[in-house]
Design a protein around this nucleic acid. Structure first.
Lengths: 230, 230
DNA sequence: TAGCTTGGTGTTGTTATGACATAAACTCCA
DNA sequence: TGGAGTTTATGTCATAACAACACCAAGCTA
């Protein structure tokens, strides 16, 4: 083989942006304007520019697609997809990022995407362009496991949230219901997971709920494990 | 920006091959024969070839460096390193793989590497070429966490091993000692983690130990958590 | 003020865990 | 042949974590 037999290729970042909306785990997808797969749904993303770092590219794409500051929310590289034939345009290796955000009114006034929309993960599954179905599946599994061991759940919540909000995140992402009372105790007894703000939120009906903000911790000790037996 | 402003680059795989040797966690390093960093230690790896998948490239490099069949041992992609200036030769994005193997007499009759050697992780730390120190650190941390939640520890062991062997893996990788009796109970009570072969190993002195092989499980339920408080 | 709804705390029986004690199996050697 | 020494395997027990469930608290509405 010659020295020139090295793979010369382009590298891209793809974003799996997850949030909890309307009681469902949803992801942001774009409708592709160009070939290939024109008109079909795909994950937001794009090519890494010359001289640009991977994380920088992910932050930039996130800003372009959602108008949000990528530095302020959870953004985490989680896998690479590099099958030679995964992109019909040629060799493209894609670095996949997992982004978590609260349910904000996203402008999605993006430029690249001809349209961006939130869709429930359970609905979109099986109809994405390229190998994005697999990327999405991997991302969701990653997020589910991350809830067990890290404070990732707070990234789904706004700055102030109730324990019920936090529990709802777990229930929606895991797809199983949790005991509210035991959940409260676990969360409160975990050091630095959440800290009270002192304020309360008054619901249309029922007792007011204390508000909390995310604590300093990133890892959960002890972990909050889902029930794998069921 | 123009369409041609996309990063055109080469992609490489780097391997962190871990084993437990002589009571220490060791990794395989090569001495670089070419510039840059000639004569310095580095992780084994190389460029991905045209038309070659990432996992395929990792398996190939593993075979070249160690003479071992990559398909038969644990090989897992764990991170991507793509800072624009991480390689003085130009833009190189590296996909890092974590390989785990038992303490076999490795031929290391490689072709690329002018020399390959096992070195304790604690010794080599801080003296590797490129950004390989960081890659190694990330890999070790990954392996440590994987021991908690998966059956990765069996990958450090030969086909047949005792519970003491398995415990030793945990102790060496985690750097802390575990209670043999409680460890036994946990391991045996975990479904499909290990299964007895029926045979025994007779040590030079002491009671023979029952031999086990790896069970079918890949995830550990419940997990075996290290003591984070200490 | 009764009734509804949601949030938060107690109680209890069961299971997992950590610390430590003891028995079992083998070799060596007197 | 029968300890002594060494390593593996199993047992015990107090405590901690946990799931399931009862109950109380705090707001609103009627």
């Amino acid at each position: 083989m010659t020295t020139r037999d090295h793979a010369l290729l382009r590298i891209a970042v793809d974003l799996v942006i997850l949030t909890v909306r309307e009681g469902a785990l949803q992801t942001l997808v774009v409708i592709r304007g160009n070939k290939p797969f024109a008109g079909q749904f795909a994950l937001p993303g794009g090519f890494v520019r010359a001289g640009e770092g991977l994380d920088d590219a992910a932050v930039r794409e996130l800003a372009e697609e959602t108008g949000l500051d990528g530095g302020s929310l959870h953004l985490e590289q989680f896998a690479v997809y590099g099958e030679p034939d995964r992109d019909p345009r040629g060799r493209v290796v894609s670095v996949a990022y997992l982004a978590i955000m609260p349910d904000l009114p996203v402008p999605t006034a993006g430029s690249d995407a001809s349209g961006a929309a939130w869709v429930p993960v359970s609905k979109i599954h099986g109809s994405l362009a390229f190998d994005h179905d697999r990327i999405l599946t991997d991302a969701v599994e990653r997020a589910r496991r991350r809830l067990e061991l890290t404070t990732l759940a707070t990234a789904f919540c706004p700055a102030e949230f109730t324990i019920g909000d936090l529990r709802s995140v777990y229930e929606v992402v895991w797809g199983e219901s949790l005991d509210p009372r035991n959940f409260s105790r676990k969360v409160i007894n975990t050091e630095k997971f959440i800290e009270p703000t002192g304020a309360k939120r008054i619901p249309p009906t029922g007792r007011p709920a204390a508000l909390y903000r995310a604590g300093g911790a990133t890892t959960l000790n002890p972990p909050i494990m889902r029930n794998r037996s069921r």
